[in-house]
Each structure stands twice: as C-alpha cells, then as structure tokens.
Computed example of a mutant assay.
Amino acid sequence: MQLAVAVLHTAPPTGWDGKAGSLEWDCWETVEHLSDDLFAYAVQLGPRRPPLEGNVPFVWQSRRPGGPANAVHADRAAGPAGLLQVLEASGALLVAMVRTASPQVRAHHVFGVSDPEGFAAMGTLETLVHTHDLATGLGLAWNPPADVCARVLVRLFPDVQEAADPWPTLLWATGRAELPGRPRRTAWRWYGNVQEEARREG
C-alpha cells in the first residue's frame, strides 16, 4: 500500500479526471473504488460473527451512471492529497483487521468464503492491479515487487500456471495483458476460499 500511495503522490494534479487504463472509470473514481474495496474487506472481518452469506450491509451507491458503487467517497474539495489519504486510511484499516482477527475467522466474499489471509491477499491484488490502471492513466511507472505478486498468484489463482515473472502473469490473470502463447483473458476471477478447506469439500 505504501509503495502504491508513494507512486500516486507523484501524479500530476490535473490528471485525475482522465481514464484509468482500460477501465471505464476516471482515476479519481478508481482510487475511490480501491479504497472502498479495502474498506469492504476490512469490515467483513469486523463483526463478532462475520457474515458467511453476504456483505455487512453498508449502502453502496454510485455518484453517476456507470460509476463505481461505493460506500467510501472522498471529498473532492480535499484534492488529490485528500483522496490518497482516504486510500491510505482504508488500507490501514484492512491491515489492522487482518492482524487482529483470528486465523480461524471466515467471512463471505463473492469469490469464496475466506480467512484473514485471503482478505489480505485480495486487498493486495486490488492494490496491485488498480495501481497499474492508475499508473497507465496518469503516465506513471509501476513495477511492484515480484515476491508480492507471486504470493498473490499462489493464494488467489490456483488455476494459473506459475511463470518466471509473476507481475506480467498477474496482469494476464486479471485480464490486463497478453502473455506469449496466452491471449488476453476476456473473463476471469480469483478464488478466495481457503484452499485446504476447498479441497476437502470438493
């Protein structure tokens, strides 16, 4: 998270209304969406009995047709610095929940009931790929650590064959790039289930 925020702080102040890579959202909306993802993952772990069949019932709403439906929105008057503060705060909330929740906790996600480690991996994935979208739209360089990308692939994409360079593989797995011999994905998902439990149930 800190690496992503540091990179985004170098963005030109006039670039936030432009499209974020291949997404239909602008860069401001994409940071709000990422902040909302991190917030949503954190609050799933919060209740004494986390929900197993749905989300904690916050209201998610879009501010325009086609925009992301979020519970978290940044105050435009605070500018890009305020927007990134919202992102950093949401990330810190997820980190705190993952660190304090019991490893035995399970909570709903549409891609599988998951544990704190899984929600941490999902938050990391969202941060990696949406920072890529943002960097593309804002004209920034973004090359996250290979070991972080590799851990996300192992935890969330058991269907993806390991590759020598995990970052391009992660971009391919999330429909953002081609690989030699592997065309760009037009549909994709990850698997949030605790894999040992999923194997036992299967």
Rank of each mutant, 00 (worst) to 15 (best):
residue 154 V to F: 08
residue 202 G to H: 14
residue 195 Q to T: 06
residue 122 M to D: 02
residue 171 L to T: 12
residue 107 A to G: 08
residue 7 V to T: 15
residue 88 E to K: 09
residue 50 P to K: 13
residue 156 L to M: 13
residue 122 M to T: 07
residue 4 A to V: 05
residue 78 A to D: 14
residue 66 G to A: 11
residue 25 W to L: 00
residue 7 V to M: 08
residue 3 L to P: 13
residue 140 L to E: 06
residue 131 T to E: 03
residue 160 V to R: 04
residue 99 R to I: 04
residue 115 D to H: 07
residue 202 G to N: 14
residue 45 L to I: 11
residue 120 A to S: 15
residue 78 A to N: 06
residue 140 L to T: 03
residue 128 L to Y: 07
residue 137 G to S: 04
residue 181 G to S: 13
residue 17 D to F: 00
residue 17 D to S: 15
residue 63 R to E: 12
residue 185 R to M: 12
residue 133 D to C: 01
residue 59 V to L: 14
residue 115 D to C: 02
residue 128 L to E: 02
residue 118 G to F: 10
residue 129 V to Y: 10
residue 22 S to W: 09
residue 161 Q to F: 06
residue 144 P to L: 03
residue 133 D to P: 00
residue 50 P to S: 12
residue 108 H to K: 05
residue 156 L to I: 14
residue 152 V to M: 12
residue 96 A to P: 04
residue 73 H to A: 05
residue 49 R to I: 13
residue 93 L to A: 13
residue 179 L to N: 00
residue 11 A to W: 07
residue 60 W to E: 10
residue 60 W to A: 10
residue 103 P to R: 02
residue 104 Q to K: 14
residue 89 A to R: 15
residue 25 W to G: 02
residue 98 V to F: 01
residue 12 P to G: 13
residue 49 R to M: 11
residue 49 R to H: 15
residue 64 R to T: 08
residue 37 D to M: 04
residue 50 P to W: 12
residue 30 T to Y: 05
residue 142 W to C: 09
residue 82 G to S: 03
residue 79 G to V: 07
residue 95 V to A: 14
residue 186 T to G: 03
residue 148 V to S: 01
residue 117 E to P: 01
residue 19 K to A: 14
residue 108 H to P: 00
residue 151 R to P: 01
residue 55 N to G: 04
residue 166 P to Q: 13
residue 138 L to T: 01
residue 184 R to V: 11
residue 192 G to T: 03
residue 165 D to N: 14
residue 119 F to C: 05
residue 64 R to N: 04
